[in-house]
Design a protein around this nucleic acid. Structure first.
Length: 572
DNA sequence: GCCGTTTTCGGCCCGACTGTTTTCAGTCG
């Protein structure tokens, strides 16, 4: 019974309650519980065993008893009853943009529509406009929404959203009216996927910004356009929301627009406790006078809080930590002295060892670990004992050529085979500076088997780092069914570092597991997994994931000097 | 349904835009 399943059930209960027009705050209680449990690093089953459920924020006696029921019986009676009360197809209608619980309930009760398909047919037949308050336009919006649902590609990976955002920001910044322009929303919080892209602009006049934005070549369709808010859809089906505000209100605007919604609700409650009402425009005193904030520091400062970095703004305890003066010192890109996974033409990389070393050096790194694949993976030219011996002399030559300005360490990304053994013998591994062990195949093995393989690799004294531990590819495939808690505990015991693979398709470990690992004292490492000279640029996404996981410089081996790193490699 | 410097009841963030019901409800973030 994993956390995801518990979270999904509470979320589904909230959806049904919403259609039933239940008390709004009761619905929000279910939603918050779903969010919190979904982002707990610790298994909720363990917390249940230890009878600590009500220590989870947002879990009171009632929800705790529901979790207890779920753990004991595998079901929640109240959930079964809710599912019987509202047809599943009516709940599905909530995923249609523009259709909320009120509309879905009316389609069901007044027109007897119980599936999205039936709703579509009814809209095409012009039946929706029979409803009081629905006209031809609303009917068309439902059809458009269903059409979008069919075409949608889901959430976009962080890396792609980042690239699009840069492309949209540049022309806006060129306008003379624009004082500031930035991304906000989940992209600024650096979530691993982004639903809609949020762009915030501070400008002296809004109209020229709206016009420029609406006419950008990426725009396929204008969804809505008002005085300060415009939404467009790109050809790829990606929605971009633009908000324009006065420069003096930049701080409150950026704070609001960055979210998360859960974080903002907590912050606004906190403001109310201090006799202030917070909106995207200003802090308002009870007498109606405004406090304008041109920076986010001023917003948090007015509430008696230190600045909370965007990556932490998920209502995962950051507000409590800020109030207590216990926010973590988060790692920054500039803290990284080295990278711990890159590939060359010797396996599936596209550039030579020297080219890669120079690229890493150009990005401010002091050292990097070359980790071509071991031959067992079957990639072109994977390395074996002989190849590694040759590569050792290459490394020596490159280090001599770079004259101390950069240092290449010799490693390997050794395959953890299907039976849990490594693809290279210990005699070979012990000649290397550091060893990364990764699972690429057999990801669909049973939880017991795949976890056993991983633990075997962690306990091998020659293995220093576990590469992309779960093996997931965001939006493509789930990771292995790992007992991640057992992996993290074993890593902490043996001193084996767990990788945060920085590639936007991996980000593995994710923020939640990285936080759990750091909390129990396991070492972490951010690796680019670069396969060409531009591949080191993704380190920013690895750093962001670490920051979302509350990771400090001390939790990482990347922040060690070369000498300290070599000492760490010799650890018992 | 949760929770407490408003403590076991009575609150629970705030505003833009749309369509339509011409004063506002619904949806979204």
């Amino acid at each position: 019974m994993d956390n995801r399943r518990v979270a999904d059930i509470f979320s589904a209960m909230a959806d049904i309650l919403e259609i039933q027009d239940a008390n709004y705050h009761r619905i929000m209680a279910y939603r918050r519980a779903a969010e919190t449990i979904g982002s707990l690093g610790e298994p909720v089953e363990e917390i249940w065993h230890e009878e600590r459920l009500t220590s989870i924020p947002g879990i009171g006696e009632t929800l705790a008893s529901k979790i207890d029921e779920l753990m004991r019986t595998g079901e929640i009676e109240a959930y079964q009853k809710l599912k019987e009360a509202v047809p599943a197809g009516v709940v599905d209608m909530l995923s249609i943009p523009g259709v909320g619980p009120k509309s879905a309930a009316r389609f069901w009760k007044e027109l007897d529509l119980t599936t999205v398909g039936a709703l579509e047919k009814a809209a095409e037949a012009g039946r929706l406009r029979q409803l009081h308050g629905f006209g031809a336009k609303s009917e068309q919006n439902v059809l458009d929404g269903i059409d979008f649902l069919k075409r949608r590609t889901g959430r976009t990976r962080l890396g792609d959203a980042w690239d699009l955002a840069q492309a949209l920001l540049t022309p806006l910044r060129e306008l003379p009216e624009v004082r500031q322009a930035a991304t906000a929303g989940s992209l600024r919080r650096m979530r691993e996927t982004v639903g809609d892209l949020d762009i915030l602009v501070a400008a002296t006049h809004a109209d020229p910004v709206t016009r420029r934005f609406s006419s950008l070549p990426q725009v396929d369709e204008i969804l809505l356009s008002g005085a300060t808010k415009t939404s467009i859809r790109t050809r790829e089906g990606f929605q971009v929301d633009l908000r324009i505000l006065a420069p003096a209100r930049w701080g409150t605007g950026l704070q609001y627009f960055t979210g998360s919604q859960a974080h903002n609700i907590r912050i606004r409650s906190l403001a109310l406790e201090r006799g202030l009402s917070l909106s995207e425009y200003a802090l308002k005193r009870e007498d109606g006078t405004e406090i304008l904030c041109a920076s986010e520091e001023e917003v948090y400062g007015a509430l008696g809080l230190p600045f909370i970095p965007p990556e932490l703004r998920e209502d995962r305890g950051e507000i409590e930590a800020a109030l207590a003066g216990e926010l973590p010192k988060l790692v920054e890109l500039a803290d990284l002295k080295g990278d711990f996974q890159f590939h060359t033409t010797r396996s599936d990389g596209h550039h030579t060892l020297l080219e890669m070393a120079e690229a890493a050096r150009a990005r401010g790194l002091r050292y990097a670990l070359v980790t071509d694949h071991s031959h067992g993976l079957g990639v072109t030219g994977g390395v074996d004992a002989d190849a590694l011996e040759i590569q050792r002399s290459e490394v020596d030559a490159v280090n001599a050529q770079l004259e101390g300005s950069f240092h290449v360490l010799l490693g390997v990304e050794v395959e953890v085979r299907g039976d849990g053994t490594l693809d290279l013998p210990d005699e070979v591994l012990q000649t290397l500076d550091l060893v990364v062990a990764s699972v690429h195949t057999g990801l669909r093995q049973s939880r017991e088997k795949v976890t056993g393989r991983m633990l075997n690799a962690i306990r091998n004294p020659h293995v220093d780092i576990i590469g992309h531990p779960t093996g997931r590819l965001i939006g493509e495939r789930e990771g292995a069914d790992l007992d991640i808690e057992a992996v993290i505990q074993a890593a902490a015991e043996t001193g084996t570092a767990l990788e945060i693979n920085a590639h936007p398709s991996r980000l593995d470990l994710n923020d939640i597991y990285a936080r759990r690992a750091a909390a129990v004292g396991a070492k972490l490492v951010i690796s680019s997994d670069a396969h060409d000279v531009t591949g080191f640029d993704v380190l920013r996404f690895g750093v962001a994931t670490a920051r979302r996981g509350w990771v400090s410089p001390d939790d990482l081996i990347n922040t060690l000097s070369l000498d300290d790193l070599l000492s760490w490699a010799e650890r018992a």
